[in-house]
Design a protein around this nucleic acid. Structure first.
Lengths: 337, 337
DNA sequence: ATAAGCGATGTAACCGGTTACATCATGGGC
DNA sequence: GCCCATGATGTAACCGGTTACATCGCTTAT
C-alpha cells in the first residue's frame, strides 16, 4: 500500500503539499494540485485513517451498548442510530451486552483506549459507576432505559405518563380489574410503567390489588407465563396490560389456549408498537414509540458532546402515542360477540 | 492521559521495559516488574490502542454488512457474530445497509483505510466487484444470502433442499395446489427456495401453476398482499408456502380477515423459525435455521482469513430442520373441525 | 533600489506505542 | 583471573499522517 511519502515522491513535492492538496486544496496552486492528484491516482493512494486518527485522537467510532439486539424495539433504535451516525460521518461499534455488566464496562472502556469517541448506553446502568468521581467521564448519553439522577444526558419517553394513559384507556372502557405484567426487575421502565398504572388506578378510585401484578422480563415466554398466572386467579382480570408487545403476544397465546377471546373475554394491551403488533390477531392496542428517533437523537447529542458543542437540553423526552387497535373493548361487551 | 513514557519516568526505567512488562512479563525481573506495575497504577495508565493498532496495522474491527437489522433473523445472526467476535478479541462495526449498494461499498472500503481487518457480508452482493481483478481483495466472507460463484468463502443453508423438504411435507399431507410467496427479487434465497418448491412438485408429478407463485420481499406487508392475491384466485390453493416467517404472519392476518381458518381451511408455512413463529396462532410450521451459528461461523472463518490460518472448508453449509407445528393439516381434513 | 509583506512550498517534530539492536552486568568454566 | 554466554535493560528508529515553523520568491510601497 502506498503512503503519502510515495505520492510526494511521484509528484515531486513535499508530503506537506500532498496533505494540503487533499485537505485544503485552495491552499495549493492549481498546477501543483494537478500534479499531486495525478500522483495520487497513479499510486492508488488512500490515506491510512489509522494514522490520521492516531494523530488527531479521534476515531469516529461510537460504541452502542444494546441490552439485546434480538428485541425488535432495540433493532429499530439501532437502525435509527446507524443512519444518523452515517450521515454525520461516524460509525457504530455494536455491543450486544445481554445485560452483562462486565461486557458493558469492557466496551465502554474502549473510549479510554482511544477506540471510540463516545458511548451510547440503552440500559439504565452506568458503566463508569466505579470510576473515581474526579475522573472526567468520557462523552456518553443514555437513551431509552434511563438513569434517574444520572450525570449523563438522556433521551427518554415519559413512561409514567404513557402507562397512565394506557391504563386510563382501559378504565375508560369500563375495566376495573386490570392485570399488569411487568418488565425486568431492575429496569426503570418497569418501575415507571408500574407507577403510571398505579397513578391511573388511584385517580380513578380503584384499589390496587397486588394479585393483579406479576413479574416478567419483556420476553414472549414471560408474557405467556404471566397470563397463565392471571387466568388462574379466582377472580380473573377483565383486561391485561403487558409492559411490552412481546409479552402481550406471549400472553395472547396463553389466553387463546384457555379458550378465551380477545377482546371479547379479556382486553389486552402492550407497549412499543413493534411491527408485529399490527399483525397479530387481533391487532394490538399499544403505545407507539419513535424508536428510530431514540437512536438518531442519541447519536446527535453524543456527537455534540464529543465536538464540545452546547446541548440544547440535557434531558430530552420524546413523544408517545396511544395506538388503539382491536385488542381492547368495552367491558359491557364482555362475553358477547 | 498518561502515556508509556510517563510510566517509564515514574518507574525509573525505559519505555521498552514498560512495554515488556505489560506484554511479556516473564522477560522482566520481578522487582522491576513490580516497580513498573506500581507506576502503571499510579499514573492510571492505559495503553493507547490506536497507537498499538497503528503500529501493528491491525484494528481488531470487523465490518458486518446487514441488509436490515430490523429483521429478526438477521438480529439473531448479528447476535451470534457479536459473541464470537467478542470471544476472539474482535469487535463488530455495524452497517445496516438497507440494501443500498453505495453504503455497502463505502463501509467495505474501511478495510482499505485500515479501519477494519475484514468484512462479513450477509447479502449476495460483492462490494468489491468493481475492483480490478488483480487487486488483492481484503478478507471477506459471505454468509446467509450467498453468491453462487463468488470468490469468497461462504456460510449458507441448502435452501433448495429446505424448500423442497417443506414442499414435500405439504404434498405428504395431501396438498396439490400449493401457493408460494417469494422473497425479494434478486435474492439467491428466493431463487433457491423457488427451485426447491419446483423440484418437489416435479418429483410428485404436480404441474407447475404460475398463478400460484407471487412476488414478495420478506416483509409482513408482502405476506399480507400475497395472501390477498392467492385468496382471490378462482381456484384457491389449499396450502401456502411463504419464503419467510414474517410473510407467513402477514399472510395469516389476511387469511383470518377472509374468515378462513388455518390449518382447517388452508395450511400455512414459513421459513426461518423466528421466535414469533412459535407464538402466533396457530404456531407456524417452518424451517429452523441456526441463525446465531451463521454469525459465529462467519466470524470464525473471517478471523482465520485475517490471521492467515488455513480454512477447513471454503463453503460451509449449515443444517436446517423442518419444525412442524399446528399451521399445517392433512387436506382431507379441509373444512372440518 | 530596497525592505516589507505575502503566498506557496518544504522541513521536521510529533502522536504513543513496539522492537531490533546495543549495552551492561553477572556468573560459570577454564 | 579472564573470557564468554546469558539475561536484563536501554536507545532509538519506525509506523503515516498533520502542522508549526522556516524558507523562498515575487510583488508592491517607499
Amino acid at each position: 500500500m502506498s503512503n503519502i511519502r510515495e505520492v510526494a515522491r511521484l509528484a515531486g513535492v513535499s508530503v506537506a503539499t500532498v496533505s494540503r492538496t487533499l485537505k485544503s486544496p485552495e491552499r495549493v496552486l492549481a498546477p501543483t494540485r494537478e500534479r499531486v492528484m495525478a500522483a495520487v491516482e497513479q499510486a492508488g493512494y488512500r490515506p491510512n485513517l489509522m494514522a490520521v486518527q492516531f494523530r488527531s485522537r479521534r476515531t469516529g467510532n461510537l460504541v452502542i451498548l444494546v441490552p439485546t439486539i434480538a428485541n425488535t424495539f432495540f433493532a429499530r433504535v439501532i437502525s435509527g442510530a446507524q443512519q444518523a451516525a452515517q450521515a454525520a460521518g461516524y460509525r457504530l461499534l455494536l455491543c450486544d451486552t445481554q445485560g452483562r455488566e462486565e461486557l458493558e464496562r469492557q466496551f465502554a472502556e474502549l473510549v479510554y483506549a482511544y477506540q471510540a469517541d463516545g458511548v451510547i448506553q440503552l440500559r439504565a446502568y452506568d458503566p463508569f459507576e466505579n470510576a473515581p468521581a474526579d475522573a472526567d467521564v468520557p462523552p456518553i448519553v443514555n437513551a431509552c432505559e434511563v438513569l434517574k439522577a444520572g450525570r449523563y444526558p438522556t433521551i427518554s419517553l415519559d413512561n409514567v405518563a404513557a402507562a397512565k394513559a394506557m391504563t386510563e384507556h382501559l378504565i375508560g372502557l369500563g375495566h376495573r380489574r386490570i392485570g399488569l405484567i411487568k418488565g425486568s426487575k431492575n429496569s426503570p421502565l418497569t418501575r415507571d410503567r408500574l407507577a403510571g398504572y398505579e397513578a391511573a388506578l388511584r385517580e380513578a378510585g380503584i384499589a390496587l390489588d397486588e394479585a393483579l401484578i406479576c413479574h416478567g422480563n419483556f420476553s414472549l415466554e414471560a408474557g405467556y407465563a404471566g397470563a397463565q398466572k392471571m387466568l388462574g386467579l379466582a377472580e380473573r382480570p377483565s383486561a391485561l396490560f403487558c409492559e411490552n408487545d412481546e409479552m402481550a403476544i406471549g400472553a395472547l397465546k396463553r389466553i387463546r389456549q384457555a379458550g378465551l377471546r380477545v377482546p371479547e373475554d379479556i382486553s389486552l394491551v402492550g407497549f412499543d408498537d413493534i411491527p408485529m403488533a399490527a399483525y397479530c390477531d387481533p391487532p394490538l392496542t399499544t403505545i407507539s414509540q419513535p424508536a428510530e428517533a431514540f437512536g438518531a437523537k442519541a447519536v446527535e447529542m453524543l456527537i455534540a458532546l464529543i465536538e464540545k458543542q452546547p446541548l440544547a437540553e440535557k434531558h430530552v423526552v420524546l413523544p408517545f402515542e396511544l395506538t388503539p387497535r382491536s385488542s381492547t373493548a368495552r367491558i359491557d361487551n364482555l362475553g358477547k360477540r
